[in-house]
Write a protein that binds this DNA or RNA. Structure first.
Lengths: 197, 197
DNA sequence: GCATTAAGAGACATTGCGTTTCTTACTGTC
DNA sequence: GACAGTAAGAAACGCAATGTCTCTTAATGC
């Protein structure tokens, strides 16, 4: 139960309460990680009881997933437009760092039971998050600028920067340093794109 | 307590017991995954009590890590020798499938608390397992055969097949299909190796 | 046989997840 | 304002798993 401006006990309802719950969950995830994430602590932090959480989300994993989406899922990342393919891809990966994708990638690996039950894979959600469509957009722009021919870049090569970024994030559990981003783009992605010319 | 050949109650000791414990742990991991892995069930399976396990490993995560190493860590994979660089790399990745690296990769992501505490990263253990040295060996052979020049392949490119393999395994939670292995080698790794010539 | 050590069993405490019941605040309608 | 319906919040419950402790006794070496 939270207090209003007059310090009088007051109950939140509906969307306001749900936002408070998801924000509390996110705070717990970012401060303690998944291992120490506990429903009880989320409830306490949000000033409510566990039953309130379970009325909305059937399990802990559902709550975690909802918290991730609520706090990072304002749609896919926007495609940067720096004037060059290299610039765009580097900027996209840097942007991905800023959106805490290292943490998100780790959290996603924790939800495999959830995905097993729903018949999807991590790859499905990963791609819905910040992957395919944005890289495609970046490449479309490069095509318009004449940097790349249409159909020149396979799907796998197109997604390679993001995949390697995620792998790196997962393996180190840290944001990916700029030099690594640049190495991925300059020594792997671009040679593959232009090697096909 | 296990039975000897005469069906007489008998206690195992030392290495014999430890192997039985690690084998039981591994069996539980492979049959149920990490989410349903429980110390109690390992103990029951090994015909012992939980206190016995805790005398050896301070926590559940330590036991999991030891089980992984015990069952997959008979040193790094051997470097295949098929007569060509492509053949070697494809064979290595297939071999990695057979050694259940999909499961191992997933398990490793579950132990991040462990790594945080010990100051290492997943990358450290991943590389100790089946990575760097084997790919280096494969490339050394390619150099001897004259397929590649010394110093032609950067570390990052050298490890790329294994990194992409692991990413794929993690994202799908399945063994990596042959066509994907071949795509990684044929459309990404080899063009990067030979594009530098 | 004796001393030492560790295996195995059983009991205990704590924590976290998930569930249920009850009270009551809140909203909308009459 | 009264009333009905709904959901918020609190408290209690049950269960499972982790980790711990104590005790008995098998096993080993001298």
């Amino acid at each position: 139960m939270s207090l209003n401006a007059d310090g009088v006990a007051r109950r939140r309802r509906g969307k306001e309460l749900e936002n408070a719950l998801l924000d509390a969950a996110w705070a717990e995830l970012t401060e303690r990680g998944y291992d120490e994430f506990a429903i009880d602590r989320v409830a306490t932090r949000a000033g409510t009881s566990r039953a309130v959480l379970y009325r909305r989300w059937p399990s802990k994993q559902d709550l975690v997933r909802a918290a991730v989406e609520h706090n990072t899922g304002e749609g896919p990342a926007t495609a940067p437009d720096t004037g060059s393919l290299r610039g765009d891809v580097v900027a996209l990966l840097r942007q991905t760092n800023e959106r805490r994708q290292a943490l998100v990638t780790v959290l996603m690996t924790r939800l495999d039971g959830f995905y097993r039950a729903s018949g999807t894979t991590l790859a499905d959600l990963a791609e819905a998050g910040s992957g395919d469509s944005v890289m495609r957009e970046v490449l479309d722009r490069a095509i318009e600028r004449g940097e790349v021919e249409p159909g020149q870049v396979s799907d796998r090569i197109a997604q390679l920067p993001v995949h390697l970024f995620r792998y790196e994030a997962l393996m180190t559990l840290q944001p990916v340093p700029d030099p690594v981003i640049e190495e991925i783009v300059d020594t792997i992605f671009l040679p593959l794109v232009y090697g096909n010319r």
